[in-house]
Simulated assay, not measured.
Amino acid sequence: MLARNKEVNEACSSIQQIEDRFNNVYNYPWVFLNDEPFSEEFIRRTSQLTNGNVSYGVIPSEHWNQPDWIDEEKASSGRWSLVLQNVIYGGTPPTIIFYRNMCRFNSGFFFRHKLLQQYKYYWRVEPDVKYFCNVDYDPFLMMQDQGKVYGWTISLYEWGATIPSLWETVKDFVKANPHYVAPNNSLSFLSDDGGESYNMCHFWSNFEIADMDFWRGEAYTKFFDHLEATGGFYYERWGDAPVHSIAAALFANSSQLHFFRDIGYRHDVFQRCPQGAQHVQGKCWCDPNDNFDYRENSCLKRFEALES
């Protein structure tokens, strides 16, 4: 969990739900990261909610703060452009800087943190989210046994104004490094014209269960370095969700991606609620009629087409 001290109430809510619905059986460890030292209150209140080991880490400044080589005048102009378009997190300080730092950190650095080096898989948990159902199996073992590298619950369209040059940057990388593209990739999830343009579909990365060795591998490392060199995380507002999604769809085989149909989850206004027998078996408390899966701005049908 990436969290700030002021989010202690929201963090505790998410932790308790994960513990009640899953981790009270498995006692997996928690790792909390912050761009500043955690307060005594945050440590005391969060650590008492789990029987698993708990670690608290500070993010190195070079992994968090805007790099010195970024042209601040150009970055400021980009932020103002998004303000004029009424894009969320577009330009109101200090949220705008925090959000861009967070997206860059989640894209390229969280899996390099010293506290995470001993781990292969992670489950990303956000403060102030809802988990509606029991998870009565081990998703980490499932990922390992089935050779999965990336798991998700909600997919939707990105706001195009935040990533105007991202796809051209991706195409430049792929053109120079075609050997990194998986033979049975999921390009059709990302593009409706064979890769000429990006349809904006992505997996919502505020929930993800994934293999950090995939991010640590040569393909993704060089991919992130290519993106980083353009400054797009600051000159535009590239999110870790499209960055992770594009990489997973291109550099992994489609069979290595997993949709967690049995996990009920809500973040902000978006909710997915398991249906039918899965709702009953998971003892879910969400309203099955409030489900994002097949809403107009959901990309699930595109993913299901890969499986058919």
Rank of each mutant, 00 (worst) to 15 (best):
Arg4Cys: 04
Lys6Ser: 10
Lys6Gln: 12
Asn9Glu: 09
Glu10Pro: 01
Ser13Tyr: 12
Gln17Arg: 10
Gln17Met: 15
Val25Ala: 10
Val25Asp: 11
Tyr28Met: 07
Leu33His: 08
Asn34Tyr: 07
Pro37Lys: 05
Glu41Val: 10
Glu41Tyr: 04
Glu41Ala: 15
Thr46Phe: 03
Thr46Glu: 09
Leu49Val: 04
Thr50Glu: 08
Asn53Leu: 10
Val58His: 04
Ile59Glu: 06
Pro60Thr: 05
Ser61Pro: 01
Asp68His: 03
Ile70Pro: 00
Ile70Tyr: 02
Trp80Asp: 02
Leu82Arg: 15
Leu82Lys: 13
Val83Arg: 02
Val87Phe: 00
Gly91Lys: 04
Ile96Cys: 11
Arg104Trp: 08
Phe105Gly: 05
Gly108Ile: 10
Phe109Cys: 01
Arg112Gly: 00
Lys114Gln: 10
Tyr121Pro: 07
Glu126Leu: 15
Asp128Ser: 14
Val135Gly: 00
Asp138Met: 04
Pro139His: 07
Pro139Gln: 07
Leu141Gly: 01
Met142Cys: 04
Gln144Arg: 09
Gln144Asn: 13
Lys148Trp: 09
Tyr150Phe: 13
Gly151Trp: 06
Thr153Asp: 01
Gly160Thr: 05
Ile163Met: 14
Leu166Met: 13
Trp167Thr: 15
Lys171Gln: 15
Asp172Tyr: 02
Asp172Gly: 14
Phe173Ser: 07
Val174Ser: 05
Asn177Met: 09
Asn177Phe: 09
Asn177Thr: 13
Pro178Lys: 13
Ser186Met: 06
Ser188Asp: 15
Ser188Glu: 15
Gly195Pro: 06
Ser197Ile: 01
Tyr198Gln: 03
Met200Leu: 15
Asp211Pro: 07
Asp213Tyr: 12
Asp213Ala: 03
Trp215Gly: 01
Gly217Ser: 14
Glu218Pro: 04
Lys222Gly: 07
Phe223Gln: 03
Phe223His: 04
Phe224Thr: 12
Phe233Ile: 13
Tyr234Lys: 03
Arg237Met: 14
Ile246Tyr: 06
Leu250Phe: 05
Ala252Cys: 12
Ser254Phe: 10
His258Tyr: 12
Phe259Thr: 02
Arg261Val: 00
Asp262Pro: 03
Tyr265His: 10
His267Met: 13
Phe270Thr: 12
Ala277Cys: 01
His279Val: 10
Gly282Ser: 08
Glu296Phe: 09
Glu304Arg: 10
Glu304Tyr: 10
Glu307Lys: 14
Ser308Ala: 15
